[in-house]
Design a protein around this nucleic acid. Sequence first.
DNA 1: TTAATAGTGTCTCTGAGACAATATAGT
DNA 2: ACTATATTGTCTCAGAGACACTATTAA
Lengths: 241, 241
Amino acid sequence: MTDDPWVPPVVLLAVDLVILTLRESRLHVLLVERGIDPYKGSLALPGGFLQHDGEDITAAAHRELSEEADLDVEALSLEQFGVYGEPGRDPRGRVVSVAYLAIAPRLPEPSAGTDAADAGWQSADSVLLGDLELAFDHRRIIADGVERARVKLEHSALATAFCGPTFTITDLQDVYEAVWGISLDPRNFYRKVQKTEGFIVPAGTARKAATGRPARLFRSGPCTVLRPPMTRPAEAASVKE
Amino acid sequence: MTDDPWVPPVVLLAVDLVILTLRESRLHVLLVERGIDPYKGSLALPGGFLQHDGEDITAAAHRELSEEADLDVEALSLEQFGVYGEPGRDPRGRVVSVAYLAIAPRLPEPSAGTDAADAGWQSADSVLLGDLELAFDHRRIIADGVERARVKLEHSALATAFCGPTFTITDLQDVYEAVWGISLDPRNFYRKVQKTEGFIVPAGTARKAATGRPARLFRSGPCTVLRPPMTRPAEAASVKE
DNA sequence: TTAATAGTGTCTCTGAGACAATATAGT
DNA sequence: ACTATATTGTCTCAGAGACACTATTAA
């Protein structure tokens, strides 16, 4: 064993995006089908390696976000929530992946029945509980990301990021119910949300559905931290419906 | 411009440890003096590069923890809380650092006045507010780590990790006051802590200080998640004392 | 007895949970 | 009028905050 000067090992750095949205009042996550060989054909999170040596990690996450989904990147919430670098997780070598959580509002349908761009949205329940084949350790990353979203809904105004620019209180309640996987009392929810200063601000009256009283519209307010927080019921590990 | 096959850039991966403890009822962080040239002589967080190519990141954090402080690694709480990989943060090249938060109980003094090993413990206030010269972006990492500790104290039983195997309720209160930087009512604290099921369990009676009624001793209980959480007062950004 | 710290009791107010009642639209 | 949804009230109970009081030790 010679006395070579020690040099630190290098790793490949990647970003993975857990992009969540609501579809039919259920939490969905954006997945893509891998086109190249490690796990080719399997579903995986959007993401990839740093593009060039000087690219910032957050910038890479934003870039992937605008590549994979073509969303208004600036308006989206995007937050780092974990690092995954277990030695064996990628057969190509030592890959360390920084995981980001993004929340997207319900997008307008790509076209008519064109679920080609739509194919990527998968129900979070089926991904987490089902036997869907996922690449790498992406099932765990999704689980961690969803859990992070659940916690953030308690303490921040993140829920409004699931909605469009304006929304009704019922829309907002749907977000909480879908992400937490439980049912909430509409009356208590209404009271709570209204009382929380700066969470949502009025934005006119809606002309919405076919039947029933029209709901008031709101847009997200200035406050990002909810005080007091939204309280998640104790049995919030049960599955909805 | 030729059509070379694109290869992803590589980075050097490091871990940095924010090790917190209590000394004289004030929050302290462990810093070391850098011996080699980037920022040589400045204070920095304990940490370093991965040692070999197959080393797990968490394992590297544990290794650094037992190297820098020689603490009982198994007993310590150690949790990843962020990634710092801005391109310009290290003059040596592209270094991405995974930050860990560790909590250590008050250690027995290294010897008599031997503050050689003691020199590393710096007051968190002076580090965050002061003009102490810190290497890299370590001041921000410390700020993020301290903030993480503050939040975790609300929702988990982390506070007991600052104490020894047994402690009094006043000891525990000191932890909350030091980390949050506020004063708490001893009577309400007592009631709250006692009522929280599984947080702390009795462990005999103390024979403690020179004067006053001896306090009961406790050890940390089985519950790690506090329900309901400890509520941090609103003005918890003010400085204590 | 006094000093010093440990621990208990009480009152009030806010906020969560359960649930009834009213308002406003379309048909 | 009837149906469906939105919005407002009311009651009760748990828990936080403020504060007075009792208990147990050493000197």
